[in-house]
Write a protein that binds this DNA or RNA. Structure first.
Lengths: 389, 389
DNA sequence: CTGTTAGCGCTTTCAC
DNA sequence: GTGAAAGCGCTAACAG
């Protein structure tokens, strides 16, 4: 019965004495049953056994199974997989053969547990997976992390502060190695302890509140200021700024850049041109149409994000040429419709987040590092028109 | 020294005898050191100790730590966290208090290992994180999975077959509970074994090759056919189809739908109107300009995906009204520029993938299930123009 | 309702 | 260069 012709997985079953109380005891008993039948030839498997076989699949081969088949100790097999060089070429080959035959895959769960209980995943908590900004950041992160053998786990808060706590909690329970976070809750002090416990936190797009964490942000203020300066240089003075919602950190910064640049050009009071929170239920399109209906309408509009830019296109049509406009954030087809924007490399931003995570893992101590990713003006026609005479 | 006033984490240190050979022995020794200093008051921590404390952070509290503080056994604490009701309210409160004080978080890694070595994550292997289609699918999946307490791990193949193997391998090593996959390799038979080992596979957007797996696809063929039928009903006969690359499953299907609908309208030979692989180095815009340069140019164009639609806008401008056109895939601002499309609910598709995963986890046996998500024509102007007389 | 014991699959320490 | 024993944090089985 314990003949050498039994399949490797069946051999593992013979080790039953060594693992008498596995939680999946039923599985194992069943496995032995079906394997025994199988050793009589496939035709001997009854219907019940076949159904059971499908319902309770065979176990994966473990390191011990490989060791047994290769005739070495578990530790030696382990050495082959943790990059140790202290294995003779001959032994190594035997082990690799055995592993191949058993389709062995090291269990990262077990390895992580043994290795200080920390997984190889980095959590990224973002607002919304349908927002192209967050997702391109995630793409950059993933590329950079995978080069270091780390994976990325994504969680969405749907811009709900309570969800931030829930998702972060799940990730911490999974023992992510680090946490990247687009903060939405009012307060991230609850993460201070985790940082102290060795889980670095890097915030993305917005700074953390009440938490000493690294951050990777855009240069929101300078980006908008540059756009407005280009317009004032062309002679524009009646420049509007459209953004919603106004309270978000990035939007506050962009508004500040707008005001700053207009003040430089001698325009002190911009309040008449600011549309910061859209009329409830009507949205940004209404704000923009309202601006154009003014007695003295603006000669240029700066939008605070890509949603506002889309609203502008919807409100005024794709190629309105009696008005100058520049949008924060690049977007698909902006080139095709000649929409000038304040752009930045979103994927690179994600890579930078990953690099901060890696650097922080290498050096958990030290003051928080804050990175501002640069923006640049992309002229495409809509932002280079002087005001009408 | 073992006074009750020592912090809980320091108490854990007193259990040193119980875990004498932890792999992080250095950490623990260090922890004891700093804790002892700390018990003399924070001011007594020397510079070296403080640096060391930061470099080698204290350990997380474990279930055993909580049990010790609450004066119960580990198993009882465990019962509180696995949803057992067999704990007296009083004990439960004591445990919860202790857990709170120690900031205890159950270690999902350990739990997963004990639970048959399967994690709570579902892997989704997609082509490219910057592609909005895949990402919206991921968004839908994530929403549905999180309702069942599962998380999602994302991996990108960058459309490289070798990467598919690598990413899938990583996920399997992490013992994902199931695998969703946009296949890119020629052959997925390597996953047959994993399925047999209890890891369900659901393919997305394209069927698997040589693997019995569930799939969630779009109704590509009918989607294109519907668009073409609407055009033939308006009188169009010279209808072009632009798509690249031609070999992809979805594109093959969409082409078939195009041909089918034109055949229904009496047009047998469509080869002159098909632009299936763009001129190398020049892209889809060149294909489209080439079509319009023909002696008898098409009166309508159907694009095979959103990239081709974008190329059409770039080649012909955003509001070309002497030509009818319809695109497969909806895209941002398509409404603003009056671009009619064959649309579908991408997020819902993702939810459906998640539901297939969950169903398959419940019932690993049974024949593969194939789902086709419906598409629908969204009229926005560009597709409802009759041909010029 | 609660505790004891053993072990998931792996890696660590230490001995050979 | 290799092996034996122990245990990471948690939970299943089985007592009491």
């Amino acid at each position: 019965m314990t003949s050498p012709h039994l399949s490797p997985l069946c051999r593992a079953v013979d080790g039953h004495v060594q693992r008498p109380r596995a939680p999946t005891g039923a599985h194992r008993a069943l496995k032995r049953f079906t394997c025994q039948l199988a050793s009589r030839g496939p035709g001997a498997i009854g219907v019940a056994a076949r159904v059971a076989l499908v319902h309770k699949p065979p176990q994966r081969a473990t390191l011990a199974d490989v060791a047994r088949l290769a005739g070495v100790s578990a530790k030696t097999v382990s050495r082959v997989y943790d990059g140790s060089t202290n294995v003779s070429p001959d032994t190594r080959r035997r082990i690799e053969d055995a592993a191949e035959r058993l389709h062995f895959r090291p269990n990262l769960l077990a390895r992580s547990l043994r290795h200080g209980g920390v997984s190889t995943a980095v959590g990224f908590v973002l607002g919304d997976l349908t927002n192209p900004f967050y997702v391109k950041v995630a793409a950059g992160m993933e590329r950079e992390l995978s080069r270091s053998g780390l994976t990325m786990v994504l969680g969405a808060t749907e811009d709900d502060p309570a969800e931030e706590h829930r998702v972060v909690g799940t990730f911490l329970a999974q023992r992510v190695r680090a946490l990247a976070l687009v903060p939405i809750a009012d307060d991230q002090s609850y993460l201070e302890r985790e940082r102290g416990l060795g889980t670095p936190v890097v915030t993305v797009d917005r700074p953390a509140r009440n938490l000493l964490a690294d951050s990777v942000l855009l240069d929101d203020r300078e980006g908008t200021a540059e756009a407005v300066r280009a317009l004032t240089r062309l002679g524009h003075r009646r420049i509007a700024f459209v953004c919603d919602p106004a309270h978000l950190y990035t939007h506050v910064e962009r508004l500040a850049g707008y005001r700053e640049a207009l003040r430089e050009a001698g325009v002190e009071d911009t309040s008449a041109w600011e549309r910061l929170d859209d009329p409830p239920g009507q949205g940004t399109e209404a704000s923009i149409l309202g601006l154009m209906d003014m007695a003295e309408p603006p000669t240029a509009i700066v939008t605070g994000n890509n949603k506002a830019s889309a609203a502008l296109v919807r409100a005024l049509g794709p190629m309105r040429d009696d008005l100058a406009y520049v949008g924060f954030d690049d977007f698909d087809l902006a080139d095709a419709i000649g929409f000038s924007v304040v752009a930045y490399d979103t994927v690179e931003l994600g890579r930078m987040v990953a690099r901060r995570v890696l650097a922080r893992l290498d050096d958990p101590a030290g003051a928080p590092v804050h990175v501002r990713m640069p923006t640049h003006l992309v002229p495409r026609g809509s932002g280079e028109r002087p005001p009408p005479k």
